[in-house]
């Protein structure tokens, strides 16, 4: 099977602070990969490097076969990124947001119209696209943000805490959408603090103070540390490493 993401000894330093410290990972195509870690562990910095938004200090990596140093523009075209920060224009309607992002990716007009219809249909957004994004409930806004990230049909999708603050019912529906994407062959690289979501991932990694301290299938990790569930496994692992400063 081909690999969607390969990184080796990837490092990012800000001054004398090492945000990401020699991490290595391989994510297979079509996989749902859970990129877990404590607050401030360096997850967002790592994702920003993978998405071509930030140049690494050292180490190597490729995303979708493109080098994260030299081919950042090609990476940006082939991936979708849903950032932690709300990326929609609050005063534009859902349609206007989609149209804007579609134009940025230079999708031909006729195609764009069709894709927007398809996406709003499959994401259940159709009734909400005429309203300003800022007036939508958080759950719908997140779906709209997902739609903008999917417009150019990326092969790899990076999602940074896509479900923070969303209620359990809505989170489940959001994940149903993610499964469908994975079934269609999209690779999903997700960060989350909800351990029930993490259990839905095929494999997960746990990051702490810039380092990846564990990688594996959720069930295997739970068994390895002899814990009742992933939440306890996570807490045990991070505590062992000495708190989360």
């Amino acid at each position: 099977m081909e690999n969607a993401v390969v990184i080796d000894r990837l490092t990012k330093k800000f001054g004398d602070f090492t945000a990401v410290d020699e991490i290595g990972l391989t994510v297979q195509k079509g996989e749902i990969f859970g990129f877990l870690g404590a607050n401030g562990a360096g997850k967002t910095t790592a994702i920003r490097m993978l998405c071509g938004l930030l140049l690494p200090t050292s180490g190597s990596g490729s995303v979708g076969g493109f080098d994260i140093y030299k081919e950042t523009e090609r990476i940006k075209k082939s991936i979708g990124y849903m950032s932690q920060k709300f990326s929609l224009y609050q005063d534009l309607t859902g349609d206007e947001n989609l149209w804007f992002y579609g134009s940025v990716y230079q999708i031909p007009r006729r195609d764009l119209r069709k894709r927007m219809e398809e996406l709003t249909e499959t994401l259940g957004l159709s009734e909400f696209t005429n309203r300003p994004a800022g007036s939508l409930p958080v759950g719908w806004r997140q779906r709209l943000a997902l739609a903008t990230a999917l417009l150019h049909r990326p092969k790899i999708l990076f999602l940074d805490e896509p479900t923070a603050g969303i209620d359990p019912v809505f989170r489940r529906r959001f994940w149903e959408i993610l499964y469908r994407l994975a079934d269609e062959g999209t690779t999903l690289f997700v960060t989350t603090h909800y351990m029930d979501e993490a259990e839905f991932c095929r494999r997960i990694s746990i990051m702490h103070q810039g380092k990846i301290i564990e990688v594996g299938k959720p069930q295997d990790l739970i068994a390895r540390y002899d814990q009742p569930n992933l939440q306890e496994t996570f807490i045990t692992l991070i505590s062992q490493e000495g708190g989360n400063g």
Binding site: A38, N39, A41, E161, A164, G165, H193, N244
Partner: peptide, 13 residues
């Protein structure tokens, strides 16, 4: 009001 939204499991604990 939602004090632990976006907070990792250990910090939540």
């Amino acid at each position: 009001d939602e004090p632990t939204t976006g907070v990792d499991p250990l910090s939540r604990r």
